[in-house]
Design a protein around this nucleic acid. Structure first.
Length: 380
RNA sequence: CGUCCCAUAGUCUAUUAA
């Protein structure tokens, strides 16, 4: 059973849910762990309804089953449903609590996260870290710091969370002070610091850390590539790209976006064609590059190409394509894209809504633009 | 003691320019 379970988990971790299902169905013997692996697999792959169905069918559940399904709801932003289940758990573990804290925090409901945190019977370092990250991500770095100072034990996650928090608050110097005070910095903390310098366009300091750190991983390389490329140092970025030991889809995407940003959509396309495997972001980066550089026709072309390939566009795709329609004053195409937006079924994102308004007004359809404005549930 | 399932930290893409 253990071996089967390991295989199921292996499949789900790689997003191979079909294989996982097949194995799960024909396995001669399963236990609660097999079920958990499946539930968690669906949840991690965004198939929360499937996860829930399976969860409801389970012959027996343990706390891991509950945690997995709750994490699924959290991940899709359905925090109230997550909380409903959380309240029903027969007995909660540390994981349950941390999941809920993160859930509230990442939906901007930081006070509720805090209430969960405060009502915990006991806490471990992950609970503290989740709460700190919650404050940091909600731009309340001072409160994050207060917890950081008072927590009983800090691990590397705690330190890295704070470094990232200071970076996001625009306080690179404080981030650096923390890094220098950190007992055992690792590749994550260094990379967070690199990102901080990059965001403040202090590429020399980013490079200095990069050169001095004893080990780098693919995320470190990607952060450097993206930073240099976005800052117009596309040659340097490419050099890093060539030098790095292993490239993943993010590395390629960073280069594509870099070329797009530097008004070289054709170079972007060359990389796009050359990369071993494209994902949604690759398409988006390429299309955005075309849209932003006055190649609206190519933006369309690739938009339809991706549809044909069965790649599902998201809000990023739509905003780019719509802005291409706007600059070409292409009302017909714009309407077509609008249909796709509707077909996609999300309710109107504020970015997409704005893009639609802009598109319709630039195309001379003020009525449609006004109508969109009324349709939007959220405006800025 | 001896890692079959669940939680916390770092990297890629988008709208708005008199």
């Amino acid at each position: 059973v253990v071996t089967w379970n390991a295989m199921i988990a292996g499949y789900t971790r790689n997003g191979m849910m079909d294989d996982a299902e097949k194995l799960f169905e024909k396995v001669p013997e399963k236990n609660v762990i097999s079920w958990n692996a499946m539930v968690s697999g669906y949840a991690q792959n965004g198939r929360i309804e499937d996860a829930r169905n399976l969860f409801d069918k389970m012959p027996e559940r343990n706390v891991v089953s509950w945690n997995a399904i709750i994490a699924g709801y959290v991940q899709t932003g359905r925090i109230d449903e997550a909380y409903e289940l959380f309240e029903k758990i027969p007995s909660r573990s540390m994981v349950s609590w941390a999941t809920m804290i993160k859930g509230f925090a990442q939906n901007g409901r930081i006070e509720e996260a805090r209430r969960v945190f405060d009502s915990m019977p006991e806490r471990n370092v992950v609970s503290w870290n989740a709460m700190i990250a919650g404050y940091a991500q909600n731009d309340r770095i001072e409160e994050a710091n207060r917890l950081f100072e008072t927590m009983p034990d800090r691990d590397r996650v705690s330190w890295s969370t704070m470094i990232t928090g200071y970076v996001q608050a625009g306080r690179v110097e404080d981030a650096r002070l923390l890094l220098d005070r950190m007992p055992n910095p690792n590749v994550v903390s260094w990379t967070a610091m690199i990102t901080g310098y990059i965001q403040n366009r202090r590429l020399d300091e980013a490079r200095q850390i990069f050169d001095r750190m004893p080990e780098r991983d693919i995320v470190t390389w990607n952060a450097m590539i993206s930073g240099f490329a976005q800052d117009g140092k596309i040659e340097e970025a490419h050099h890093l790209f060539d030098r790095m030991p292993v490239r993943d889809v993010v590395s390629w995407n960073s280069m594509i976006a870099g070329y797009a940003q530097n008004r070289k959509p054709e170079n972007a396309r060359q990389l796009f064609d050359k990369m071993p495997e494209q994902n949604l972001v690759s398409w988006n980066a390429l299309i955005a590059g075309y849209a932003q550089n006055g190649h609206g026709e190519d933006a369309f072309k690739y938009f339809f190409k991706m549809l044909k390939k069965g790649v599902k566009p998201d809000n990023c795709t739509f905003t780019s394509v719509l802005s291409a329609c706007a600059s070409l004053a292409a009302l017909e195409q714009g309407k077509q894209v609008h249909e796709n937006v509707i077909k996609n079924g999300y309710d109107l994102d504020i970015f997409v809504g704005n893009a639609l308004i802009t598109m319709y007004s630039k195309c001379g359809s003020i009525d449609f633009a006004l109508w969109m404005f009324d349709e939007m549930s959220e405006r800025d």
